[in-house]
Structures are given as structure tokens and as C-alpha cells.
């Protein structure tokens, strides 16, 4: 039996063992340790009694409260949805003008639209909805597939070039690579297209622009229209305004005509409800109106 010695500082005995100079006091475990250990055990027992806790082969103890997390969640989600429905459901049939006329509703549309847009759309179109290379600006007046509330919410529902059965298809063919236009012709078409939004070009090189106009009528007008102002039923953009998705400089336009474009916008049906899609459309139209012109 090892014989302990008394530690002069604390007054406790040591256990009598020593390891490389380290000794241990034989102090009893402090009372609070036992108290709190028992208390924490009792709290645990309470949890085990009240809540689902212990496995029993193929099932588990259900707990005295009969609490079912999934049911509780479903209930809370349903309560929250019905609270929202009071103001969101009317959006499904409301026109833009009606929505704008109701200032309380418009405030809610702006609040919710900002987070819905931020969580679902901003990754491509930017937090201010001003787009970027390859992603259209949504707060100018140019729209590919129509810019009223019904057209915008439909584009949100089915997307562009998606696997949705009702999706809107649009493709800019690779006119250069597929041999429809040679390099020189492409450059003429570019001059013509640029002249539509920049008349100075037509004055500098009228012959080139006229040649380009003829080539345009032959190769491009079936989609973009005789006046090059686009056809929204086909998702063909207006080329006469200053809005560009892939860039309006000569290099970008060359790339577009040579290799074509095949943009993609996801279909949101299944993720965003009808009311949410129309809410976003109202949000965007309102945002566009508040832009400095």
C-alpha cells in the first residue's frame, strides 16, 4: 500500500504515487460535479420520456408527448402559407395596373420580390437585375419574349431552351460556320446592324451598310423582322435598339453571327408558384419604371 503525504498548500493527502515528480491529491470529487452529473442525467431521462429517443429493434420509443417532427413542420408550413395566401393568391389574376394601384400590396411585392429575385435570379441577372454578358438586362425596355406581366411570368414558368414541355425555343444559327455567310458578308451585316442604333455609321460608309442591309433581308429578317426590330413570338431580339445581350461591339457581333447563340433560362415551375412568378414580373416591371431614363 502506497502511503500518501499531506500537501502543505491544500491540506489534502496525496495518493502516494509519483510519476517523474508529479503527484496526485486524493481530493474527493467536488460535490457540484456529482450534483450536476445527476441533474444532467435527470434532464436526459425527461427528454427520453417525453420525446422519441431509444431504438427498439425495428421501431423506437415514441415519447409521452407524441411529438412528430414532420407533422409539426407540415402544420407550421401550412399555417404560414395560408397567412401569405391572403395577399398572394389575388396576384394570380391581378393585372399590373391593379397591383400598382394598391400601395400596400405593391410594398409587399417589392419586399418579397427583392428576396425572391436575390435567391433565384440574381446569380445570373445581378442583384440590380441589370444583367451582364450573356444575361439580359431586365430593367431596360427590351424584352425577348414579351414584356407584359403575362409574358414575363410565362417565361419564368417554362424557361428558354429547357426540358419543360412548353418551353420557349430560340436559337441564333451559326451563319458563318455553317457557310451561309462568308467573313466579308458578316462584316457588312455587322455594319448594317450597328448603323440601326448608331446612324453615324450609315453616313461614314453608306455602301457597306447598304450591302449589309441586302444581306440582312435575305438571311436574318425572317426571325429579326424586316425592320430588324425583332419578333417576340420567336424570341428574336430587337437589333435596332441599344440593348445587347452578348455585346454590340464588332468582335462580339462577329462571334454571334459566326458561331450562333443558344441561351438558356431555367424553367421555374415547380420551384416558384404562379403567384410568386407573377409577383416577380410585377417587381421587375416596377423596378424598370423606377430606373432613371
Amino acid at each position: 500500500m502506497s502511503v500518501g503525504e499531506r500537501d502543505p498548500h491544500s491540506g489534502y493527502m496525496t495518493t502516494g504515487h509519483e510519476w517523474n515528480g508529479i503527484k496526485e491529491l486524493n481530493t474527493p470529487v467536488p460535490r457540484p460535479v456529482w450534483l450536476f452529473l445527476i441533474a444532467s442525467f435527470l434532464i436526459s431521462v425527461m427528454m427520453w420520456v417525453l420525446l422519441p429517443a431509444w431504438p427498439l429493434g425495428s421501431t423506437f420509443t415514441r415519447g409521452a408527448l407524441g411529438y412528430n417532427e414532420r407533422a409539426a413542420l407540415d402544420e407550421r408550413v401550412a399555417v404560414a402559407a395560408s397567412a401569405r395566401a391572403s395577399w398572394m393568391t389575388p396576384l394570380e389574376t391581378m393585372s399590373y395596373e391593379e397591383a400598382r394601384a394598391d400601395s400596400d400590396l405593391l410594398m409587399r411585392v417589392k419586399q418579397t420580390g427583392q428576396t425572391l429575385f436575390g435567391d433565384n435570379c440574381a446569380a445570373c441577372h445581378g442583384v440590380e437585375a441589370k444583367g451582364g454578358p450573356g444575361y439580359p438586362n431586365l430593367v431596360d425596355t427590351a424584352w425577348l419574349w414579351g414584356g407584359d406581366i403575362d409574358a414575363i411570368s410565362e417565361t419564368l414558368r417554362v424557361g428558354i431552351n429547357t426540358e419543360h414541355p412548353d418551353t420557349q425555343y430560340a436559337q441564333m444559327p451559326s451563319l458563318g460556320r455553317d457557310g451561309a455567310l462568308d467573313k466579308k458578308s458578316i462584316l457588312r451585316v455587322i455594319s448594317y446592324v450597328q448603323s440601326l442604333s448608331n446612324p453615324a455609321i450609315a453616313e461614314e460608309a453608306p455602301a457597306r451598310v447598304a450591302e449589309g442591309n441586302a444581306l440582312f433581308a435575305e438571311n436574318c429578317s425572317s426571325c429579326h423582322g424586316e425592320d430588324a426590330k425583332g419578333i417576340q413570338e420567336l424570341g428574336a431580339p430587337n437589333l435596332a435598339d441599344k440593348a445587347w445581350i452578348y455585346g454590340g461591339d464588332r468582335a462580339s457581333l462577329y462571334q454571334t453571327i459566326q458561331y450562333g447563340r443558344n441561351g438558356h433560362m431555367p424553367a421555374w415551375e415547380g420551384r416558384l408558384s404562379e403567384a410568386e412568378r407573377r409577383l416577380l414580373a410585377i417587381y421587375l416591371l416596377d423596378l424598370a419604371e423606377s430606373q432613371p431614363q
Binding site: 470529487v29 436526459s44 431509444w54
Partner: peptide
């Protein structure tokens, strides 16, 4: 499953005492 979460939570609470000791 919820019961596994309850067990994990209760043992985490008891764990505090020996840790603090």
C-alpha cells in the same frame, strides 16, 4: 430520425459535466 437526434442531444448535455470537471 428524430430519436437519434434526441439521444445525441441528451448525451451532449451530460457530456458537459465531465468536460468541466
Amino acid at each position: 430520425p428524430f430519436w437519434v437526434q434526441t439521444l445525441g442531444m441528451s448525451f451532449s448535455i451530460m457530456l458537459l459535466i465531465p468536460s468541466w470537471a
